[in-house]
Design a protein around this nucleic acid. Sequence first.
RNA 1: GCCGGAGUGGCGAAAUUGGUAUACGCACUAGACUCAAAAUCUAGCGGGCAUUAGCCCAUGUCGGUUCGAGUCCGACCUCCGGCACCA
Length: 888
Amino acid sequence: MDEKYFAQKIEKKWQTRWAARSTFEAKIDDQKEKFYCLEMLPYPSGKLHMGHVRNYSIGDVLSWYKRLQGFNVLHPIGWDSFGQPAEQAAIKQGVNPREWTENNIDEMRKQLQSLGFSYDWSREIAAHRPEYYKFDQWFFLQMLEMGLAYRKDSEVNWCPQCQTTLSNEQASGGVCWRCGSQVEKQMRPQWFLRITNYAEELLQDMSQIEDGWAERVLTMQRNWINKSKGAFVEFRVQSSEFRVKVFTTRIDTIFGANSIVVAPEHPLILENFDSFSDGVRTKIKEIKVEQATPKDYDEESEKDGVDTGLKAVNPFSNEEIPIWVGNYVMMSYGTGAVMSVPGHDERDFEFAKKFDLPIRQVISEPHLVHEHHTMQSLGLEQAFTAKGILVHSDYWNGKESKDAIKEMTHHAETHGFGEGATTYRLRDWGISRQRFWGAPIPIVYCDSCGAIPVAMDDLPVELPDSAPFTGIGESPLAKVDDFVNTTCPKCGEPAKRETDTMDTFVDSSWYYFRYCDPHNSSMPFASDVVNYWMPVDQYIGGIDHAVMHLLYTRFWTKVSNELGLVEFTEPAKRLLTQGMVVAESFYSKEKETYVFPDDVTIERDESGKVLGAKLAEDGSRLRVAVEKMGKSKLNGVDPNDMISIYGADAVRTFSMFAAPVENELVWQETGIDGAVRFIQRVWRYVYKWKDVIGKSNDRIGAGGSESADLLKAARYSDSAKKLRQKTHQTIKRISENFESGQFNIPVAALMELSNAMYEFKVDPEAADDSDIIAVREACKSLILMFAPYAPHVSEELWEVVTGSDIGILESGARFPIADEKVAKEDEIEIVVQVNGKVRARIITSSEASKEELQKLAIQDKKITEYTDGKEIVKIIVVPGRLVNVVVK
RNA sequence: GCCGGAGUGGCGAAAUUGGUAUACGCACUAGACUCAAAAUCUAGCGGGCAUUAGCCCAUGUCGGUUCGAGUCCGACCUCCGGCACCA
């Protein structure tokens, strides 16, 4: 056996063995507790980036840990293989999107395998294959039957030059990515899923998962759904039958309404448009165009609007107020009209300031009520948005907001101009895409029967193998006559297929079900199999998916539950949201592009701090920036190169050690040497002790089976005792870290353990039995705890220590368990503070009582120097930690 | 703009959840080994003053609560993620 650590060689060896032995294939086993560990599946871009490495390393660490604890672990992987990049490659390079995608999958599979991830490859799935997307279509038809899928007109980005629809990304900055034309909005009929039916459940069921999901994710989802209780109120339009309906959560502020602001496409405006003056009409058209132009989010759009001259009547005060058209009111949101209360709403305040509209205060802070009650108007510096006491509100004066909201809503209801209501900001999920590379929506349009679903037995509706990819005109799919032309499933007459395909979020909404039963051809999955494995015990993915994907997938689970397919209503018990991995990159203003360190001359000061950067090619200055990996075409660091230089174990270990998993990580390679050195240190240590701790030594029992009696019976020297103490302290610490999802600290703890092993200065030749037992215990514990990070080298060293090539998992080895008695320190250091400042340290028994500690502290010479001549006010004693003497 | 986060040495970070700030590692410096280099080992490594065993300052900024604050509260600054057709 080679005694030098050579990563590439042992990694290949163990990857081959695991595959040959099907080590990681999961089977249903009622004798064992199951653990479903799932990482978000990748889009097959063709190249792994460090964000992937980090994500999948976390999952692999956890999978190994759970296997070592005896769980029946399901750890699958697959491909989210529909999406725009394949279609863009088809347009730009003329390749076939399916071939392009399959090639990318082959490439990325190789890379994942070279990292030695413990996947059950027999369950691999890919969204673009008919055997998968057949069931996207199946689910769609089920939802159609349930009344959850429907069709309505909705906006898309439209390039008038290319005569094609564009994604938001393709329309960024409001111009077409291809030709640079101004992008417009266009209405077209599209399919939607009624996620809004589940708004309340999506909120309520958060109680099932709040222990396992990060609070920040649930908060974001809650705010996205944005439930608000309030009331609809109708304002009569003066000298007209028209009533404008608004929604407000603050009906208590209605006496402060100075105007009604409506969207430019509000029915009232459409109806009265011809009666407006030229100036008003021009302004309304401008606002309409502004709203129809896609904007970047960071563009701050200034409030704009125009007084239409129409008047509305406040149903509470009978006051006549003007009706404005405003650029901040959208027809697609709410009722398309708001009542403007500048005194108590920030947006309305800003609008009123800009157009010099009256601002009235009708809510006051309790202690100011008297003053405000008698004053006509107040010069508010900013909107007062808190609740309070009503003033200048006629009959309602003096009431608290909370009561006024109830009573005023009731008043509106009994007088027929309003009603209490709960609204949600969440909108239905539009799934239609005017693109080729997605699952076709299984609908046929017949002139006489209308939109008819394809029969279940006729699924899948398969994508044709080729289509004209031009980037111009309608979707490529619509240009394939053989696909488009069909017969009506109902009447048999000639008819046309739906040519829109589904949003790729559909594929990723149920893939974790499919992993449980990946080869089922008649159903998406068998219920009993899914009910064994699901819900997912630990889901791991980027924080960038906190809202959309995770909300869609929760919705899908609820629908599946309603269909009787699954027993549960939430897909994942625990969610770990990994921080983004970003590449240190540089932005070139002239070229409007990001470049990465290879092409850049970086200027640093003596300490290595980056001062600036210049483009190597022409010396132009660059802005230092970071860019999310995978977002840009340039992915910064190539994991392939790193694996071939440092080995998979080192790359995995370092990606975990570099930062806590929830932090954002600016990737830099410096530091990975430390991981390599650590692996080599462990390697050398095990080899140094190999002959005395391995199986060949039968003086103290075989290396493969550690007997508790043996450990107990041995008489240890002080240094051996100290080594055992460190071993068990490390086990304890790492177990706690794993349970709480901290994966960086265990690496540091293992390094500390190995440092302690090196400090155990007994020569293997001169070691007595108890020394050997202590060393062997340390080595075996270290190997087992390191296996989740660096499985290849751990398997190899396990073979060295146990003398058997059966493999860690096959041998039945378990994650070590800490012995509290062994881990316990006899003596500890107690800090003594005077007024919170550390002034002395005393070494004492870890058992010392509060009284003993206090006594020791005030007798200490260093402490008396500070306390002499002063009055001791109090003494705080925290056993095991510190004593704080407070003096005056 | 709206929603959600983050900020600790030259760098990645740790801190038992209110109790010794800087564990572990990277980089760096010096020494040992070597003809030499690499590797390895030993020591040092937040800043300032003393260079002794001591003192003062430091966890983005400003303020507050507390015997005690990186941790809790308030305001601000900077950076990052999401915003419904990137996945």
